[in-house]
């Protein structure tokens, strides 16, 4: 009886504390005045003159904050490196069953998904999308192959590591070229073109091609490490 009463008092106290905290937090968040549109206005104003990229979000990610994107890509690389270090690839796949429907569907879908991923990467400066999104679509195509083919399919280590390291090196070299030619890292070193065409935006498209290659190689390697974690 006594134990029951203390438990009830504790529960009541915790509930009171949680509700008070929630109310205070909600009051703070509801009265939060978010600074609207000060830096974004300026970026929108100078975007057409400095990048000629039709997608302003893309030009923020790759041009105005290019160094930040380099850091983001290296965080992704370090994470995949850590996964590969303490979870080495086994030879047995978790999904080793034979499903004819899945087999036929994947053999139709795989080239289409690759094509769509390349399209999303190449049109990153014209429409929503870009290197990260297209890279993840390509990695999804490879994940479908892992689900279908079981133990008989593995990524070629050489191709994956070569594309990953070459694209990362190209990304850094592009930034250093901007530092050499212009005044800051990731500046425009190519002709800008006209707004809305495929060959426009100068250096943005090259950066997104490198990012797309790197992200697709890394995420498909990650999927393979998770799918083949059976006998770690």
């Amino acid at each position: 009886m006594n134990l029951k009463r203390t438990l009830r008092v504790e529960t009541l106290l915790v509930a009171l504390l949680v509700s008070v905290t929630t109310l205070v937090l909600m009051q703070i968040l509801l009265n939060l005045h978010l600074a609207g549109h000060s830096l974004g206005d300026e970026i929108l104003h100078i975007n057409a003159a400095s990048t000629q990229s039709a997608n302003a979000v893309t030009s923020v990610v790759t041009y105005f904050r290019g160094l930040d994107t380099l850091g983001e890509v290296s965080i992704l690389f370090l994470s995949i490196f850590g996964v590969a270090l303490h979870m080495p690839r086994g030879s047995k796949n978790l999904f080793s069953y034979h499903n004819t429907l899945l087999y036929i569907g994947v053999s139709i879908l795989f080239p289409l998904m690759l094509l769509f991923g390349v399209y999303v990467i190449l049109h990153g400066h014209l429409s929503p999308g870009g290197g990260f999104q297209g890279g993840v679509i390509i990695a999804g195509a490879f994940l479908l192959r892992f689900l279908t083919y079981g133990d008989h399919y593995e990524l070629k280590e050489r191709v994956v590591s070569l594309s990953e390291s070459l694209s990362g090196a190209g990304f850094i070299v592009l930034g250093l070229l901007g530092l050499l030619v212009g005044d800051r890292i990731f500046t425009q070193i190519l002709p800008l073109g006209t707004l809305g065409e495929l060959l426009s935006g100068g250096v943005i498209e090259l950066i997104y091609i490198f990012v797309g290659l790197k992200v697709s190689a890394e995420i498909s390697l990650l999927a393979e490490h998770f799918v083949k974690a059976h006998n770690v």
């Binding site: 929108l44 979000v57 990610v61 904050r65």
Partner: peptide, 23 residues
């Protein structure tokens, strides 16, 4: 959206959202 497509040819904060938080 801050994308110059579908008839929009110029960037103006009067009718476009802030691109910075999305990035």
């Amino acid at each position: 959206a801050p994308i110059a497509a579908d008839g929009i040819t110029r960037f103006d904060p009067a009718f476009m959202v802030d691109p910075l938080p999305q990035a």
